[in-house]
Nucleic acid binder design. Sequence first.
DNA 1: TATCATTTGTTCGTATGTATC
DNA 2: CGATACATACGAACAAATGAT
Lengths: 247, 247
Amino acid sequence: MPGDIVRPSPMYKQLADRLAEAIAEGEYEPGSVLPSETQLMERYSVSRPTVRSAIAELRSMGLVESQHGKGSFVRAHGLPAAVIERTITRSGKSFALGWPAEEVELPAVTRGEAAGIAATLLDRSDEAVFITDRLLADPTTGARAAHRTLIPFAVAEEIPSLAKHPDAEPVDIYAELAAAGHTLTWTETVTARTALPDERADLNLTDGIPILITYRVTASADGRPLILEELRVSADRARLTFRISTE
Amino acid sequence: MPGDIVRPSPMYKQLADRLAEAIAEGEYEPGSVLPSETQLMERYSVSRPTVRSAIAELRSMGLVESQHGKGSFVRAHGLPAAVIERTITRSGKSFALGWPAEEVELPAVTRGEAAGIAATLLDRSDEAVFITDRLLADPTTGARAAHRTLIPFAVAEEIPSLAKHPDAEPVDIYAELAAAGHTLTWTETVTARTALPDERADLNLTDGIPILITYRVTASADGRPLILEELRVSADRARLTFRISTE
DNA sequence: TATCATTTGTTCGTATGTATC
DNA sequence: CGATACATACGAACAAATGAT
């Protein structure tokens, strides 16, 4: 419908759009500081709350990062540095992952029940599972990742070594499963969402940066899921790569 | 250091955390409405701006969605419905993708230069490329995706049919490349970020929902990148799956 | 070291507009 | 129409971090 009468968009959004455009065009370069709130008030003849709302928009878009007492700085953008290679390599009976991350804390093992997404992907509702949590870090870039392993009790009963050491490294668990006669297949599901407060702390996240989440299901040849791994990482610090082959 | 003296966190954050916790524990169920701003003001003895800041936090976390004149509603969360299967299948000389999406608009072809991330992944800086943009939709869920193909001029010169029809479907481009004698390999890189304003409109995004971005590089056997595809999709509506095989 | 100006962060109050029922 | 709800915008005051004097 051409000629529609539209309300003007709010002033704070207009200001946010202008600043975003200026950033995109390189008028404010990455690392440089935006004009102060007082300067923006005067330059655009708006109140301080309006300026602050506009900058809040830019923050939530991940375009700027504000520092108390200093100013709001334009964020550098580009492909995240840390590359998490999701390919699994196998030589004989042993497996290897492409991301040689270090453990920041000792693994923590708890028992719980598969629920929500985990239950859906494991195809086991309300079943008891071993949960192992790890906090990992890429030694070169410092990128952090939260890793979780879910082992259903039924699987642990079938393979006692898993019940004994549910906090074994994923590659070792693969080896145990293979040794128990399973022909392993993997499916990985990737999604993203905004971080919750506790995740912000664990993963060193800044405002406006989502987390990438991958769920890796290790299944037997018949497609029955055996274990589930979940990896959460800052989308700003790390990216995931997959090698794809035709089937 | 136990017993550290810490500044109390801001009231609006405390309130946001409490509400977020209440949502996580199911006190406010998905689809239900939060108490009104006035009610929250009275219940927690804070001012209206404080309540609004708290709700803005919840919005940016993707936990609630506010509707003018009605209230703030708890968002349903879980695994996104639309599954985008990134596997490539091959039968003889023809290829197929796992996501039979429909085109919402006709593909738009432009010419440009590889820059930024695209240049990095294509390993060709400032080289002229054909750019083809598509707006796709999953027919069953309605999830939308923005797809872009980058074909370097150098590759198009080598294979004239590509220069003639740079807007060919990806699977057809694969077939052309294979017919020209290339043994194709694919690498996919996944990242995520908060959407820019124009992306919000194209992809029907709501506040606090990031976009998933995948870059698929089609390379020759020697590893030289031939073409680049970029797919952007709402992390709330769609998820990506990969099949992983040991090498 | 101490102080001060600058800058962002938090919190209040108030008024008005606009969508929904 | 009116009541309720969220959205926008202004003003004011003080707190806290920073960097220079």
